[in-house]
C-alpha cells in the first residue's frame, strides 16, 4: 500500500472518531438541508430543487474549514514532525488530506440527493454525473484553499480567524445563503469575483435545468485552474515544523491565487451571463412559489366559507 493510501485511510478513520467532524460535517449539513429545502423552498419540488444547489455548495465548501484546522494542529503538536522523519513526502500529506476530505463529503452528498428525491420530490436530478463532477472539483479546490490557509497561519487561533474572514464573504456574497438575485446589484457584482459564486451557480444550473457538466465549462475550468494553483501553492508553502517561518514571498504567492477569479469576474461583469442565469433561476423559483398561492388563497376562502359570519348577511 502506498504512503498516500495509508495516510488517506488514517485521516478518514480519525475524522470518523472526531466529535467536531460529526457535528460540522454531518449534523450541520442536514440542518441546512432541511432548513433550506423544507422551509425556504416550501417543501415543493421546484423550491427544493432551487435550494439544493446552494446546500450542496455549502457542504462542499465547508471542507476547507476542518482541513486547515487539522493540519495546523498536526503541525503544532509535532505530528507532522514525526511523519517528516519517515519516508512520507509533502505531496503524500497534502494529497491524502484532499482525497480523505472528498471521501468524507461524498456520503453526505449522496444521502442529501436521495432525500431530495424521496422526500422533496426533486425530479430534475437527471444529470448526476454533472453533480458529482462539481462535488469533486468543488471539494478539491476548497480543500486546497484550506491547505494554503494552514500554511500561512502559525497558530490555531490565527487559522480560525482567517477561516472566518474567508468563509463569511464566500457564503454571503455568492448566493450560497441568500439567492444572488435577491442581493443588492453592487453585492452581486462583487460576488462575481468569488469562486463560490460559480460553484453555486453551476450546481443550480445542473440541478434545476439538468445542464450537463460540459455546458458549465466556464465554472468547471475556472475551478480546476484555481484548484491546481492553490494545491501547487500549498505544496510550496507547506511547513513540517512549527518553528519554520512563513516565507516573505508567501503573501505575494497567495495573492496570485486570486488571479483566475479576478479575470473571470471582470469578464462576467461585462457579459452578465451568470447574473442573468441566477435571475432566471430565481424568477422561475418565485413563479413556482406564486403558483402555490392561489391554492393557498382558495383554501383560506373555502375556510372562510365555513365561517358562519360570512353566511349571515346573505
Amino acid at each position: 500500500m502506498s504512503n498516500f493510501a495509508s495516510l488517506t485511510e488514517m485521516r478518514i478513520r480519525l475524522a470518523l472518531r472526531n466529535k467536531m467532524f460529526f457535528f460540522f460535517s454531518i449534523v450541520m449539513p442536514f440542518i441546512f438541508f432541511f432548513g433550506y429545502l423544507g422551509f425556504f423552498g416550501k417543501s415543493v419540488p421546484a423550491g427544493a430543487a432551487y435550494f439544493l444547489g446552494p446546500v450542496l455548495a455549502l457542504n462542499v465548501m465547508g471542507s476547507f474549514w476542518g482541513l486547515s484546522a487539522t493540519i495546523v494542529m498536526f503541525r503544532e503538536q509535532g505530528i507532522l514532525r514525526r511523519f517528516h522523519v519517515s519516508p512520507v513526502t509533502t505531496s503524500d500529506i497534502l494529497a491524502s488530506s484532499v482525497v480523505a476530505n472528498l471521501a468524507l463529503t461524498l456520503p453526505t452528498v449522496i444521502f442529501e440527493l436521495l432525500l431530495a428525491g424521496l422526500i422533496f420530490h426533486v425530479h430534475t436530478l437527471h444529470n448526476l454525473l454533472g453533480i458529482f463532477v462539481l462535488v469533486a472539483i468543488g471539494t478539491i479546490s476548497f480543500a486546497s484553499l484550506g491547505l494554503v490557509i494552514a500554511s500561512i497561519t502559525n497558530t490555531m487561533q490565527e487559522t480560525q480567524v482567517l477561516n472566518q474572514l474567508i468563509w463569511l464573504p464566500l457564503v454571503f456574497l455568492s448566493g450560497a445563503t441568500f439567492p444572488l438575485a435577491y442581493l443588492p446589484k453592487v453585492v452581486q457584482r462583487v460576488g462575481l469575483f468569488l469562486p463560490a459564486t460559480y460553484l453555486v451557480n453551476a450546481f443550480q444550473q445542473v440541478i434545476v435545468n439538468s445542464a450537463t457538466a460540459l455546458s458549465r465549462y466556464t465554472e468547471i475550468a475556472s475551478l480546476v485552474c484555481w484548484a491546481i494553483l492553490t494545491f501547487f501553492l500549498s505544496m510550496q508553502l507547506f511547513r513540517w515544523e512549527p518553528e519554520t517561518k512563513i516565507p516573505r514571498r508567501a503573501k505575494l504567492l497567495v495573492a496570485s491565487t486570486a488571479i483566475p477569479f479576478l479575470l473571470l469576474g471582470i469578464w462576467e461583469n461585462r457579459i452578465d451571463r451568470i447574473l442573468r442565469e441566477s435571475q432566471t433561476a430565481f424568477a422561475a423559483f418565485q413563479t413556482a412559489l406564486d403558483s402555490l398561492r392561489p391554492a393557498m388563497r382558495m383554501s383560506i376562502q373555502s375556510g372562510n366559507a365555513v365561517n358562519p359570519s360570512n353566511h349571515a348577511p346573505k
Partner: peptide, 8 residues
C-alpha cells in the same frame, strides 16, 4: 517534541 494524533 513529536506526537501522534490523539485518536490513533
Amino acid at each position: 517534541s513529536t506526537s501522534l494524533p490523539d485518536k490513533l
